[in-house]
């Protein structure tokens, strides 16, 4: 069977994806990950894809984000396990940390409100609703670079909040 559209694009871009995965820190696993992608393309059950190259890169990127996430979770488990066995003074379940965690929601809302209506609305539209930035720019009647800088401002404020909470 001849390769379908997406598979043809995959074959064309296989080397670039491999290079991308290596740059993303996949190391020796890069070949295996590209192979995983290839296999999964075959089991895909959905319609045509508007931008197959971006789709493939994004899928590869998500594979790496996934790996990072599971690694962090494993490390956190190990760390909790260690703390259980050797509670360190002042480090074992600190009430401050727990109280901070619950404040996150309220403070994130406050940060967003403080950014002003347009910035927070643009951030929500892109990051929560998943609408492409160009379309959001059209919706709000602003330039693409305004959308980009609004996103940056809100993201920085949110992450600054995270550093304060920690």
């Amino acid at each position: 069977m001849p390769p379908t559209g997406l598979e043809a694009v995959f074959l064309d871009h296989r080397d670039k994806l491999l290079r991308f995965l290596r740059a993303r820190g996949a190391g020796e696993a890069a070949e295996d990950l590209v192979q995983d992608l290839w296999i999964k393309l075959g089991t895909r059950a959905d319609g045509p894809i508007a931008n197959p190259v971006a789709y493939l890169y994004r899928a590869a990127d998500l594979l790496m984000i996934d790996r990072y996430r599971s690694r962090r979770q494993a490390e956190r488990r190990d760390q909790l396990w260690e703390e259980d066995r050797h509670p360190l003074d002042g480090r074992a379940p600190s009430p401050e940390r727990e109280v901070s965690a619950r404040q996150e929601t309220a403070r994130a809302a406050a940060v967003l409100a403080a950014m002003g209506e347009r910035k927070s609305a643009i951030f929500r539209r892109v990051r929560l609703d998943g609408v492409p930035q160009r379309r959001v720019a059209e919706e709000f009647g602003v330039s693409l670079s305004t959308v980009e800088s609004d996103l940056r401002d809100v993201a920085r404020a949110l992450l600054k909040l995270k550093d304060e909470i920690r």
Partner: peptide
């Protein structure tokens, strides 16, 4: 989003 979740899930599994 622009790349539907169903596609993404089929492609990369269900987490993250």
């Amino acid at each position: 989003g622009w790349m539907s979740a169903a596609i993404a899930a089929a492609l990369v599994g269900s987490v993250g």
